[in-house]
Amino acid sequence: MADAALAPAPRLSAPPLPPLAVAAMAILGALALAAALAPLIAPFDPLHQDLLGRLRPPAGFERARPGHWLGTDELGRDILSRCLHALRMTLGLALAGALIGLAIGGTLGLVAGLAGGPVDAAVMALVDIQIAVPFTLIALLAVAIFGGELHVLIAVLGVAYWEQYARIVRGETLKLRETPFVEAARAAGASSWRIATRHLLPNLVSPLVVAFTLAFSNIVLLESTLSFLGLGVRPPTATLGAMVGQGRDYMPGAPWVVAAPALLILLTTLTVQLVGDALRDRADVRLRGR
């Protein structure tokens, strides 16, 4: 009986990943690997034009050209090669935008939750303004004024969804700062920086993972929207949204021009969401042991 009382409490293990999440991770990993290796595995130069071979169907169809597995576009460019390079550009832009938003929103949310008072009110006023104004219109205006250079687009995507991080981090910080371990650290003389980095941030990983995946998917869609409207990265650089926008006029006779980049957009956003949910479940200690 005494040995049982002195025995250490069993450690809670992380819940196993569901098969759907494992499949999503595999697909997302394959997409990321393909994007990283695009210059090496693309069968053709994505900018090479061959007007005599324009709008050729994918392999297996009549009039298909050897080596062009997904067909060619309206300028005779290889769709597979352009999709690989477009995926590389789209994922890079979305990752940069999501990280910038995480840095801005996470910092402001943490400061607002810890400081309270006028600082909290000022940050939440900015959040309310961001939510009240449709950001797509702001993005269209910013890109139209400052141009479609890469650094402008990254900046626009970076401030797109920072308010989501700020609201989540502020709410969790307000709840955590009243917990006994934070009060004990404060009573021991710990600085606000130490409390934030050693006690608060580790407990914010789970909600931030979900917010990051949601923002990443939304940024992919926002970038695709801007590129579809002709306000994204300037041609001839390819992005998935730009490929869909440029090929929409050829959909009745050549649907493959739009099908491949549209499918990549769908796969990217869907798998990121599924992977984010799985990582959230593994990071959330409250779900362990169930």
Rank of each mutant, 00 (worst) to 15 (best):
M1I: 04
A5C: 03
A7H: 14
P16F: 01
A21D: 06
A23K: 02
I27P: 04
I27E: 09
L31W: 12
A32I: 13
A36V: 09
L40I: 14
A42K: 09
L47T: 03
D50G: 00
L52G: 13
G53D: 08
R54L: 00
P57S: 09
G67E: 05
L70H: 04
G71E: 04
L75S: 06
G76H: 00
G76M: 00
D78S: 02
S81N: 01
C83G: 01
M89D: 04
G92V: 12
G92E: 09
L99H: 14
L99V: 15
L102W: 12
I104K: 01
V111F: 14
G113A: 10
L114T: 10
L114K: 08
G116Q: 09
G117P: 14
A121G: 02
A122V: 15
M124K: 06
A125D: 05
I129P: 01
V133C: 03
F135K: 09
I138W: 08
A139M: 11
L140Y: 03
A144C: 02
F146C: 13
E149A: 13
L150T: 14
L150R: 14
L153Q: 05
A155E: 01
V159T: 15
V159M: 10
Y161P: 00
Y165W: 07
A166P: 03
V169M: 13
V169A: 07
L174V: 09
L176M: 15
L176I: 11
R177N: 05
R177A: 04
T179G: 09
A184V: 14
R186S: 15
R186F: 07
A187F: 08
G189D: 08
A190Y: 15
W193I: 14
A196V: 05
T197G: 06
H199I: 04
L201G: 00
V205Y: 02
V205M: 11
V210R: 10
T213R: 00
L214K: 02
F216M: 05
S217P: 05
L222Y: 07
L229C: 07
G230D: 12
G230V: 10
L231S: 01
V233K: 04
P235M: 04
T237G: 00
A238D: 06
G241D: 03
V244C: 03
Q246R: 05
G247L: 00
R248A: 11
P252S: 13
P261A: 02
I265F: 05
L266C: 10
L266R: 02
T269Y: 03
T269S: 07
T271G: 12
T271M: 09
T271F: 07
V272Q: 07
L274C: 02
G276R: 04
D277R: 08
L279E: 01
R280K: 12
R286D: 11
G289D: 12
G289N: 13
